[in-house]
C-alpha cells in the first residue's frame, strides 16, 4: 500500500510541478509516453478483473488517466517549455528489448500474458530517457527530484512484499521480481545523490 501510494504521489508531484511552474522543463516526454504504454498494456485486465479488487481497479484507472493527462499537457499547454533536443534517448531499443523478452519468456502464450510481460519489462527501463535527460543537463529542479524519488522508491518497496510472499505464502513471480530488481537498480545512483544532496537541502547536481 505504501508503495502504491508512493507511485500515486509521484504522479501528483509531477502534475503539481507543471501547474506550479507552468512548464514541463526537465521532464522527458519519452519516459512519460513509455509509462502510458506500460499502463495501457498491463491494465487491459480491467475488463475482466474489475470486480476482484476495487482498490487495484481504481488505481489502474487513475494511473492510465493521469498518465494520459500528463502527456496531453506536455503536448498542448506546456509544449513550448519542452526541449526535444535534450530528450534524445533512443526509446526504440527499450521497446524492442521488452518485446523480445516478452516473446521469449512469457508465462503463457496468450495476448494478455504477452502484453503483461512486455509491460513489466518496459516499466523496468521506462525511466532511462528521463535519467539520460537529467544526466545531459547535469542538474534537476528539486521538485523534479522528488518526483523521481517517489517513482523510484515505489518498486523498491515492492521487494519486501515479494520476500514476505515467498517465505510466508510460498509463492513468487519471477518475471515481476527480476524486472523489479532491475528497475530499482537503475535508480541506485539517483537515490545516492538524492539522499546526500537533496535531503540535505542542496541542489541536485551531478558530480
Amino acid at each position: 500500500v505504501v508503495a502504491d501510494l508512493s507511485h500515486l504521489l509521484s504522479i501528483f508531484i509531477l502534475l503539481h510541478k507543471m501547474y506550479l511552474t507552468k512548464s514541463c522543463a526537465g521532464i522527458s516526454f519519452k519516459s512519460q509516453a513509455l509509462y502510458l504504454l506500460v499502463y495501457v498494456t498491463r491494465y487491459l485486465d480491467l475488463f475482466w478483473t474489475f470486480n476482484k479488487s476495487h482498490y487495484n481497479s481504481v488505481l489502474k484507472i487513475v494511473f492510465i488517466s493521469a498518465s494520459a493527462y500528463t502527456l496531453y499537457l506536455m503536448k498542448n499547454e506546456y509544449r513550448p517549455t519542452h526541449d526535444p533536443n535534450i530528450d534524445t534517448f533512443k526509446s526504440r531499443y527499450l521497446l524492442a528489448g521488452a518485446a523480445v523478452l516478452a516473446i521469449i519468456f512469457p508465462y503463457k502464450y496468450t495476448p494478455a500474458e504477452l502484453l503483461w510481460t512486455f509491460s513489466i519489462w518496459l516499466e523496468s527501463v521506462a525511466i532511462l530517457p528521463q535519467l539520460f535527460m537529467v544526466q545531459r543537463t547535469g542538474e534537476a529542479e528539486t521538485i523534479t527530484t522528488h518526483y523521481l524519488f517517489a517513482l523510484g522508491i515505489y518498486r523498491a518497496l515492492y521487494i519486501p512484499n515479494w520476500l514476505w510472499r515467498y517465505f510466508v505464502k510460498g509463492y513468487t513471480d519471477p518475471i515481476a521480481v527480476l524486472a523489479g530488481l532491475v528497475q530499482t537498480a537503475l535508480y541506485c545512483d539517483f537515490f545516492y545523490i538524492y539522499w546526500t544532496k537533496v535531503m540535505k537541502g542542496k541542489k541536485f547536481e551531478l558530480p
Binding site: 502504491d4 485486465d45 487495484n56 488505481l59 515492492y158 510472499r165 505464502k169 509463492y171 513468487t172 513471480d173
Partner: peptide, 10 residues
Amino acid sequence: VVQGPRHDEL
C-alpha cells in the same frame, strides 16, 4: 516455483 495470484499487484 509456485506462481502467486497474478492480479493482486499493480
